[in-house]
């Protein structure tokens, strides 16, 4: 589905990502983990074509650099961790923008499936009751769920998520991961997400990639990659031991 070969990103003289090669197949959920500054966000922003890069990123064998923005948006959706809405757009207006790339013809108001997809996306994310509310009145979590609904309304085959549960409380963190897990079960769908919570990565991911200072130090099956030794190398601490210590507080 998505093939990334020799991906390198430079920010001036600093190499943010160096020679990373991975491939993502339908049905997979690739979790990107690593310490701060490891290059996780840079990796997903390169897929989203937001940063200049060297190497090749192919979607269904087509180089993303040769595809038009609306062609990419029909296949790949991106959920960022930061949103700043300055005007009083309603939740539904923001979610409806997810159908932008599916517009049929210059003068049509929306595409044939637009309203149905928008309604379904609002329902899935629990934002239907707030659809007429101004974005300026929402909490950080509600804003994030609105943009998640926009991603679902976009109806892509691949979702890229940059720390998707950053502003969400525990209930919505769980709900968001479960929603994406269910979404992937449909044919020809996959997801890539940057995560800080290794527990979530182990529970929901099918595959994982560990980055350290821009270099890929492990990639493959989720359980194999997120091993005690690999995590020790990526974070410079015993992540598993620390998580077990925290869990022990509940068992005591």
């Amino acid at each position: 589905m998505l093939s990334i070969q020799n991906l390198t990103v430079n920010h001036g003289t600093l190499t943010a990502l160096s020679d990373v090669s991975v491939s993502i197949q339908a049905g997979q959920w690739l979790m990107i983990a690593g310490a701060n500054g490891a290059g996780k966000s840079t990796f997903v922003h390169a897929i989203a074509q937001s940063v200049p890069y060297q190497g090749v990123i192919r979607y269904q064998r087509r180089d993303l650099k040769t595809m038009r923005p609306n062609e990419i948006a029909r296949e790949i959706a991106f959920l960022s961790q930061r949103h700043q809405v300055n005007y009083a757009f309603t939740v539904e207006e923001v979610v409806t923008l997810g159908r932008f790339a599916h517009r049929q013809g210059f003068f049509s108001a929306t595409d044939s499936q637009g309203e149905r997809k928008v309604h379904a996306a609002l329902e899935m994310t629990g934002m239907l009751a707030l659809k007429d509310q101004s974005m300026l009145t929402l909490s950080g979590g509600e804003v994030q769920r609105t943009f998640l609904a926009q991603v679902f309304a976009q109806d892509p085959n691949l979702i890229i998520l940059d720390e998707p549960t950053n502003h969400l409380d525990l209930k919505y963190q769980k709900q968001t991961f479960e929603l994406i897990q269910e979404w992937i079960t449909q044919p020809n769908r996959a997801a890539v997400s940057v995560v800080h919570d290794i527990g979530m990565a182990r529970a929901f991911g099918t595959h994982a990639m560990l980055l350290e200072r821009g270099k890929m130090i492990a990639y493959g099956d989720n359980r194999t990659v997120l091993s005690r030794n690999n995590l020790m190398n990526a974070y410079g601490m015993d992540v598993e031991g620390w998580m077990r210590t925290i869990l022990a507080q509940w068992e005591a």
Binding site: A77, S80, Y87, F89, G98, Q150
Partner: peptide, 13 residues
């Protein structure tokens, strides 16, 4: 108006 990055993600040139 919602955001330049978001505009790019939804397919705006």
């Amino acid at each position: 108006a919602i955001g330049e990055d978001n505009a790019r993600y939804i397919g705006v040139d």
